[in-house]
């Protein structure tokens, strides 16, 4: 439609400048923080002269170069951020694998059933999706203490899988609805059981939907703070709660730069992810919407 409408130059100028302003607001903070993470604290928070943050006046005085990796060294090695990164990797890997396995089975069944109960299951999932995860955490704590489940990675993984399920189910159901019913029905006419039809006919064609859903469950697990902060012990902490705990300790030690460096470290993988999977993310965000 852009070619179909002739725009007045004034309108065009407004649109361009508005967009430029929005892009600066949206992206500038990230680049600024990335740049600043290689400076010392006096430059990152430079009250005296803001150009110090750009050229690293104090960084040069203190370390001899315009850039320093001290923040990263302090965070990753001294404060053992690598341990948190490893924990995050384990949690994210298992949460994605398990939620997709459960979700594809359930989503496929929901998309192929027209009985009342399948509608109600989806509605219950929607209600569960609306509940803030932190409200559930107060229900977990006492049983987990009693049964000695509190603090371990597998516990966090299972809880995150369950919290992910409502969302995964909705998304995969809508993807499976787009795969024509004739496909598996004709396989069953040829003598397959329903599970065989799923295994040999549906699985080979379902990957685009599964990858998109997997990305969102990855983001959900990677970004979770409420659950992991509450049910993981200190040595099993993942990256996001670890950063939150830095805020408590680093302010007193005057090492905000540890937190800045670890914030950049957590953001970087997401950057790469968006670069490679932008199309899937956009299609996933709109999947629920465009189909009504």
């Amino acid at each position: 439609m852009s070619s179909a409408i002739r725009q007045s130059p004034l309108l065009k100028l407004t649109a361009w400048s508005f967009l430029l302003l929005w892009l600066v607001i949206a992206a500038f903070p990230f680049f600024w923080t990335f740049w600043g993470s290689f400076k010392v604290e006096g430059d990152f928070f430079s009250k005296a002269d803001w150009t110090w943050a750009l050229f690293g006046h104090l960084t040069q005085l203190e370390t001899g170069g315009a850039f320093t990796g001290d923040g990263y060294h302090g965070a990753w090695i001294q404060e053992e951020f690598w341990r948190a990164a490893l924990n995050t990797f384990i949690v994210v890997f298992f949460v994605v694998t398990i939620s997709l396995t459960l979700g594809t089975l359930g989503g496929y069944a929901l998309s192929r059933s027209s009985y009342n109960y399948s509608f109600w299951l989806l509605i219950i999932a929607l209600i569960f999706r609306a509940m803030p995860p932190i409200t559930l955490v107060s229900g977990y704590l006492l049983p987990f203490y009693e049964w000695n489940l509190w603090g371990h990675l597998p516990t966090a993984i299972i809880v995150l899988v369950a919290i992910n399920q409502p969302f995964t189910l909705w998304m995969l159901t809508s993807f499976f609805r787009n795969i024509p019913k004739d496909l598996d029905e004709s396989a069953m006419v040829d003598g397959c059981t329903h599970f065989q039809a799923f295994r040999h006919v549906i699985i080979p064609v379902m990957w685009p939907g599964v990858i998109t859903t997997g990305l969102f469950s990855l983001l959900l697990a990677y970004n979770d703070f409420a659950v992991t902060a509450m049910i993981l012990s200190k040595e099993n902490q993942t990256m996001v709660p670890k950063i939150a705990s830095f805020l408590g300790t680093t302010q007193t030690k005057g090492n905000v730069m540890f937190a800045v460096a670890s914030v950049v470290s957590v953001t970087a993988p997401i950057f790469v992810l968006v670069i490679f999977f932008q199309r899937q993310i956009v299609s996933g965000l709109t999947a629920g919407a465009v189909k009504g």
Binding site: A26, A27, V240, V266, T267, I270, I281, V282
Partner: peptide, 11 residues
């Protein structure tokens, strides 16, 4: 434009 939404809210 996607960045502010994809990044963890805490961060």
């Amino acid at each position: 434009s996607l960045l502010p939404m994809i990044i963890n809210p805490l961060i």
